[in-house]
Design a protein around this nucleic acid. Structure first.
Length: 639
RNA sequence: GGGGCGGUAGCUCAAUUGGUUAGAGUACCGGACUGUCGAUCCGGUGGUUGCGGGUUCGAGUCCCGUCCGCCUCGCCA
């Protein structure tokens, strides 16, 4: 076999007259009859090969060279020379070419379903996933693999330098069916029992703190059997951390340092100190717990002003839960979103669409008012609810800050719904108004997979509520997870709170913290409970009897009783970090072998059915009865 | 589980109100060509319009069902 002496991105003028060998794939061929050019590709770049009838040595292999096609895998030997036909400024190797004197075809390609280049239109994703090995050959995908590797390496370096131990935790784990749906693994040795795949190594890392580990990190795979999204996969990677003898401040410093290090390493970009925003402020002004602060649209609570109108929608909303404390989820509010310059850009058709849009989030609709120039040259309110607002125009203008040319959108409902709907609407409006910055230059392929340029709006969100009500069951659930501690100054309030006092329970803040980047949550963590009394109270609030708590978490409760250190931790979503660092908004781009929306791997055709023998050994029987299906109606009909 | 978009040649797409033999570019195959670089030029192969059913004189187009992919709500402690 012709073994390479160099890579395809390596040769320069300094190599002229040297004998070299290259291995790689035929990227393209230009056949002039007695003269053939091949661009040979490997992950490092492209090098032009020449086969020339007038070059004695090359003549002998010209017949073979003329059969070469894109994606053939070959090895060549020859001599480097300066290009005769002029340089190619697009290539780092563009000043030289390799005059080939020996050619070995390692593997002749079948006609590939698509060519892995970055300038022609991408084939549909189904095809890319089915032939992932071809898709991954594209330079942009190779770059993502490389960036991802760089993230692993920087992560291990940073945390190693800060005294963290990398420790592996089990993948076959105990089922604890709170939170996300789990993947179950039947146990052969104990009939009728199951492992679960971990949603995260949460309890193990806490146990590691109780084991004296002090500082733990792991780049670990996590599994959640929930429907995927553009930025979510059922199987994903977390940078998991836990620290002993710290409060939230120390963990936040450590996290911030990590982010700073990553962006410095990869972009030579200095992340400025992160602003901090409380959960309440995030919800008040952005309507979401992960605000995208790259654009300055703000939501305002104009309940006070709205109360002065005779508009029934406002009145009815404000009448709800009027006796409840401010910011209580059930108290009625009126939220306003001022859209500068919206009067022209947001057409009737668009704002009508918003009414439908917010219904997805439980809101009844959106009231719209445009601020236009009146006959007297002053502001005039136009459309919809203008007649209700005209009497309090001065108040309204002051409360919203509206100017001529603006559109103001209103949501009136209980706090939880109005806030969420306003937040979602804010993001939609930002897209419609063109306020969301492009994340780097768009690639010729139409995807965003190029070097991203920012802006990078990092943000801390802190002071989350400990608990929220599950809409279906009406029961309290932990907002982060049941091992999250209350903020230090909330501990006594929490321990002494009546579990039936909903308003107080809702008001208790946790010692949790998230890092948000451009509206995307990239990390989240909390100080953990190291006090059995606090942990017991949390379980009680979540409706677990002491017996149930013991059944599920006895190991944790026991460990907590044997000298548990104060500890805190965090997890970064590695896939999302890589998405930001690669400028893509598709998580499948940064996962080498991702799954589709039904959790299928189109390349290996997983999941697939098991044999009767396998099922019997595992003491498992399937209740699935395949329906009579039309032939050829798809993979589900197989097996 | 709900809503939306899509599926036509290997690939990317087109096909007027339901109307002639479903086209183009590219890839592939054959030929020409000695300085290209996303080579060029000439010729050619290539289609169960995802699958099943229905309406119709006639369906890529309309209707029903279904599969697959994407976006999204729910869900994601």
């Amino acid at each position: 076999m012709i073994l390479r002496t160099h890579t395809c991105g390596e040769l320069r003028e300094s190599h002229i007259n040297q004998p070299v060998s290259l291995n790689g794939w035929v990227n393209s061929y230009r056949d002039h009859g007695g003269l053939i050019f091949i661009d040979l590709r490997d992950r490092y770049g492209l090098t032009q090969l020449v086969f020339d009838k007038e070059d004695g040595a090359a003549q002998a292999i010209l017949d073979n060279a003329d059969k070469l096609r894109s994606e053939d895998c070959i090895g060549v030997s020859g001599t480097v020379r300066k290009r005769i036909g002029g340089e190619n400024p697009k290539l780092p190797t563009g000043k030289i070419e390799l005059v080939v004197t020996a050619l070995e075809v390692f593997n002749k390609t079948a006609n590939p379903p698509f060519l892995p280049d970055d300038y022609s239109a991408l084939p549909n994703e189904e095809l890319r996933l089915t032939h992932r090995y071809l898709d991954l050959r594209r330079p942009s995908m190779q770059k993502i693999l490389s960036t991802r590797h760089h993230v692993y390496k920087t992560t291990r370096n940073y945390f190693d330098e800060n005294g963290f131990l990398e420790v592996e935790t089990p993948v076959l784990y105990k089922s604890t069916p709170e939170g996300a749906r789990e993947f179950l693994v039947p146990c052969r040795n104990v009939p009728g029992t199951f492992y679960a795949l971990p949603q995260s190594p949460q309890l193990f890392k806490q146990i590691l703190m109780m084991s004296g580990c002090d500082r733990y990190m792991q780049i670990c795979r996590c599994f959640r059997d929930e429907d995927p999204r553009a930025d979510r996969q059922p199987e994903f990677t977390q940078i998991d951390l836990e620290m002993s003898f710290v409060r939230r401040e120390q963990v936040m410093q450590m996290m911030e340092g990590f982010v700073r290090r990553l962006w410095k390493e990869i972009f030579n970009y200095d992340v400025p100190p992160l602003q901090r925003m409380s959960y309440r402020d995030a919800l008040e002004h952005y309507g979401i717990d992960r605000p995208d602060t790259r654009y300055d649209l703000r939501i305002k609570d104009i309940s006070e002003t709205a109360a002065k109108t005779d508009f029934k929608v406002f009145k009815d909303a404000l009448a709800k839960g009027a006796d409840r404390p401010a910011f209580n989820s059930k108290r009625g509010v009126v939220k306003a979103l001022r859209v500068p310059g919206g009067a022209d850009k947001l057409t009737r058709k668009v704002t009508d669409g918003y009414a439908e849009f917010v219904k997805k989030f439980g809101a009844g609709g959106v009231a719209v008012v445009k601020v236009i120039k009146g006959e007297d040259g002053g502001p005039k309110l136009d459309t919809g609810i203008a007649k209700f607002l005209e009497p309090i125009k001065a108040d309204f203008m002051a409360a919203t800050g509206a100017q001529i040319g603006d559109t103001v959108l209103f949501l009136a409902d209980v706090y939880a719904i109005a806030t969420k709907a306003a937040g979602e609407l804010r993001q939609q409006v930002a897209r419609d108004m063109g306020l969301v910055p492009k994340h780097g230059e768009a690639g010729a392929s139409g995807t965003a997979m190029t070097t991203p340029t920012g802006p990078w709006n990092f943000l801390w969100v802190i002071d989350f509520p400990m608990f929220e009500k599950n809409k279906e069951t009406g029961k309290w659930v932990a907002m982060h997870h049941p091992f999250t501690a209350p903020r230090d100054d909330q501990r006594d309030l929490f321990v002494n709170a009546d579990v039936n006092d909903d308003d107080t329970i809702e008001s208790i803040l946790s010692a949790g913290y998230d890092i948000v980047l451009n509206g995307s949550e990239i990390a989240g963590g909390s100080v953990r409970i190291h006090d059995p009394a606090v942990q017991g109270k949390v379980f009680a609030l979540l409706g677990l009897t002491p017996e149930q708590a013991k059944e599920k978490f006895s190991f944790l409760l026991e460990a907590l009783s044997y000298g548990a250190p104060p500890h805190a931790g965090v997890a970064f979503g590695l896939d999302r970090l890589v998405m930001h660092l690669c400028g893509t908004d598709n998580i499948r781009d940064v996962i080498p072998f991702p799954k589709t929306q039904i959790g299928a791997d189109l390349m290996t055709k997983a999941p697939s059915s098991a044999t009767d023998k396998q099922l019997k050994e595992l003491h498992v029987a399937s209740t699935w009865v395949p329906e009579a299906r039309a032939e050829g109606s798809g993979p589900r009909a197989e097996g």
